[in-house]
């Protein structure tokens, strides 16, 4: 067992993957000598050299497009987009190309590509270093979307994403990189994209979240237990696409109440899909409205700290939402 931060666990998985499989290489902007702007790849260039840990030219479309080509040729590229906000130039390659390759070739070609993407609000990030993009991509058939919220999951899910024969968008909460710590077993099997994690089991209310919000949800749920005697079940979805529908439905069939928390803005956020699923398939179990706690419908967290805190749901906001729904 080792105690690691989220980013240390990611670095550890990259290091292990490079060591284990000669087909794995990583590329992105400043990921070589600089070790990445967040230091996710620190030390890997020195250890594996420029052939395996390769600074890319400054082109997101190129990073993903070249990654697709290398994946088609049966390498295992792990591409980094420096900030989620800059993934949009690569949208065409992700949505029109990587995600469609398997279907459009009737299974002839597959794209075993991992795209690592630091996302979400971080103090001082401003409008162009804070975006959450999961909902934009969760709409797209043919992509897997993984959002770990614990170091242990980050490590084993990154291994699982590399083993998966499909394109995987691996979203990393950058505010959580050093804020989230946890135990990581010495040896751990890879975890393929898919199953949710019951972070805390409970009977009064189901709280669905991912990434940083799953971390905050656990904090809020503990306080609800301590301060209000409420027994909240926290479901860390971990994979948004394909969604672990069974875990969502099973939890709500037990609690009858559902709260979704995301830092992405509200309208057409992934919470809407959870709500639709519950209304569609768990209507009889529901004891109250499906509630969403989400950021306001503005582009991203503003730079000013006060506005930033207003924007980003925190444990206090989650606790308040838990109390409201529990009282319904």
């Amino acid at each position: 067992m080792a105690d690691m931060t989220l980013i240390e666990a990611i670095r550890c998985a990259l290091d292990e993957a490079l060591a284990q499989d000669g087909r794995v290489f990583i590329t992105g902007e400043d990921i070589g000598r600089r070790g990445g702007v967040f230091r996710a790849t620190q030390g890997l260039y020195e250890k594996y050299g420029a052939r395996r840990v390769m600074d890319s030219p400054l082109t997101e479309m190129g990073i993903v497009g070249v990654g697709i080509g290398a994946a088609l040729a049966d390498l295992r590229p792990v591409c980094e987009i420096q900030f989620a906000d800059f993934i949009h130039p690569a949208f065409n390659q992700i949505v029109g190309e990587a995600a469609r390759m398997y279907y459009r070739s009737a299974g002839g070609w597959r794209v075993p590509l991992v795209i690592r993407v630091p996302y979400g609000a971080v103090p001082g990030g401003g409008l162009y270093h804070c975006q959450s993009v999961e909902a934009l991509f969760a709409h797209i058939p043919g992509l897997k979307i993984v959002v770990p919220s614990t170091p242990r999951d980050a490590r084993r899910l990154l291994h699982g994403a590399i083993l998966d024969p499909n394109p995987v968008l691996f979203l990393e909460t950058k505010y959580g990189y050093r804020q989230i710590r946890g135990e990581v077993p010495e040896r751990d099997a890879p975890l393929l994209p898919g199953p949710a994690r019951i972070a805390r089991s409970g009977v009064d209310l189901s709280l669905f979240a991912w990434g940083l919000m799953a971390h905050y949800a656990e904090v809020a749920a503990e306080r609800a237990a301590r301060e209000d005697g409420l027994d909240v079940e926290v479901v860390d979805l971990r994979t948004l696409h394909p969604l672990d529908r069974d875990s969502v439905l099973t939890s709500v069939s037990k609690t009858g109440k559902a709260l979704v928390v995301h830092e992405d803005n509200r309208t057409m956020g992934f919470g809407a899909e959870i709500a639709a699923l519950l209304v569609d398939e768990a209507f009889e179990c529901l004891d109250g409205p499906v509630k969403r706690l989400a950021a306001p419908d503005v582009p991203a967290a503003p730079f000013n700290r006060g506005m930033f805190d207003f924007f980003l749901p925190g444990p206090d906001d989650i606790l308040a939402a838990i109390r409201d729904l529990a009282a319904y």
């Binding site: 000669g22 290489f25 052939r51 479309m61 190129g62 993903v64 497009g65 070249v66 990654g67 697709i68 080509g69 290398a70 994946a71 088609l72 040729a73 049966d74 390498l75 590229p77 065409n92 390659q93 029109g96 190309e97 469609r100 390759m101 459009r104 070739s105 002839g108 070609w109």
Partner: peptide, 28 residues
């Protein structure tokens, strides 16, 4: 022969990636 889309020029970075893979395998 790699499957193509109708969206023009999307194949070019992919072709660069295939060429990269060729060279990667040779150098490895």
């Amino acid at each position: 022969i790699i499957s193509g889309s109708s969206t023009v020029a999307t194949q070019v970075p992919q072709a660069a990636g295939l060429a990269f893979a060729v060279r990667y395998r040779q150098r490895a």
